[in-house]
Design a binder for these strands. Structure first.
Lengths: 227, 227
DNA sequence: CCAAGACTGGACTGAACGGTCCGGATTGGT
DNA sequence: ACCAATCCGGACCGTTCAGTCCAGTCTTGG
């Protein structure tokens, strides 16, 4: 049992918890196991798609003992998929979109940095995977209403993050600039670019589209304003 | 047998052929059966994805008798998928991209019409499916080298069609306009927009992105030139 | 210390899938 | 008329998959 716990948790953290927990709930690490499953599944789904990932694959990668171990935490593969999607977007909001909220940088400059960060990430990954959301959307949107709804939320929230950035930048933007439309355009272009870079594996193409996208945003600047 | 042929072919066409073929090859309609399989598979793959389409589904939709009937024409599911992709792109080149080559219309106007035609098509389809190429790309590019290669070709050819249109339009375009980059940008945005409209099923969003894309193209026009 | 609930192990099920095999029908060439 | 090639029908195979079942172990609250 001790060995099992040691396997589940890792490093110094477990020693600390073992020392502290005396009258804690026995299953304080339930959530830790759940997260491990979700993380494992997230990687596999990103690499192979939802249909291409089997429960057994997830079990192996998360070092679970068997089916019942998995089905103790999730009632179905669909539920897992949905939770992976939610978790993926939480992370993306916390980490990926963080730069959009950085208060010390000019809003439009932040947007450019964000675009660049996606380009770098995709380049580092060797142009594989692309966008987890875009992949899941292509694969599942028409098939599974639950995924479609959650993906709608994902794209809406992402768009609203960009909208508030653009709203913040409105002193620099021209009157006619439509922030809602612009935010959607940016996301569509980024998703498309990621998808195409996955196919061509061409760094130049991705950089070119990103550069043009930045120019498109710049086109909405008020006359005379430059960044 | 006659009934079987009548089933395979249709309408007046078969009567014509039956009248004409006397010393023709007995299997002149082999290719007709092949096409029927490819067409059936194309529909199913567009609706459900490649992994989501089983050989049995294809057999049913193409009214084949059984597995061996199918495997007589295709040696594997992968081969079928690849041929579906090629055929799909042929059709797209002939029909979908035809407007890009229309000689009687101004080049940039043609591009706008092309963008609009994709928007209408997707709207008519109830925002399902999206782009067959984008879907296949998301699903298969990382998994299957054959699909990736063929998809690279698809996007390259599509881009080169737009490039030649832009080349034709160069008297109206500014000096700095980079036709290669611009063509890729257009495709990426369109693919992203189609994917997102599949998720949100929002006509307004799709139209907005299309309108912005046209404005982006217009932004490359020479000073003083309007369409 | 015991009962209730949380958790684990592993065998099992039934369906779906891609693909094979082989016997038989149809037909063109000779 | 007969052979070979093409085409068709359907049973069959091995594998994979999501999901179930149950017997067992561990932990905590009472």
């Amino acid at each position: 049992m001790l060995a099992a716990i040691r396997q589940k948790a890792c490093g110094i953290f477990v020693h600390f918890v073992l020392a502290v927990r005396t009258h804690q709930s026995y299953n304080w690490f339930v959530n830790e196991t759940r997260s491990r499953i979700i993380d494992a599944a997230a990687v596999l789904i990103a690499e192979r798609g939802f249909k291409g990932t089997s429960i057994d694959d997830v079990i192996e990668r998360a070092s679970l003992s068997g089916k019942s171990h998995f089905y103790h935490y999730f009632k179905s593969k669909d539920q897992l998929g949905l939770e992976v999607l939610s978790r993926q977007f939480e992370k993306f909001t916390e980490r990926g979109l963080a730069i959009l909220r950085e208060p010390m940088i000019e809003p439009v400059e932040r947007l450019n940095l964000f675009i660049d960060s996606l380009v770098s990430l995709q380049t580092e990954r060797g142009f594989r995977i692309g966008s987890p959301f875009g992949n899941l959307a292509s694969e599942m949107a028409d098939m599974h209403e639950g995924f479609r709804e959650r993906l709608t939320l994902v794209f809406e929230r992402w768009a609203s993050q960009i909208q508030s950035l653009l709203w913040e930048a409105r002193p620099f933007l021209s009157e006619e600039a439509d922030t809602v439309r612009l935010s959607r355009f940016i996301i569509a272009t980024l998703e498309g670019a990621l998808m195409m870079s996955k196919v061509s594996r061409d760094a130049e193409m991705l950089r070119g589209i990103a550069a043009d996208l930045k120019r498109f945003v710049a086109m909405h600047m008020r006359e005379g304003v430059t960044i």
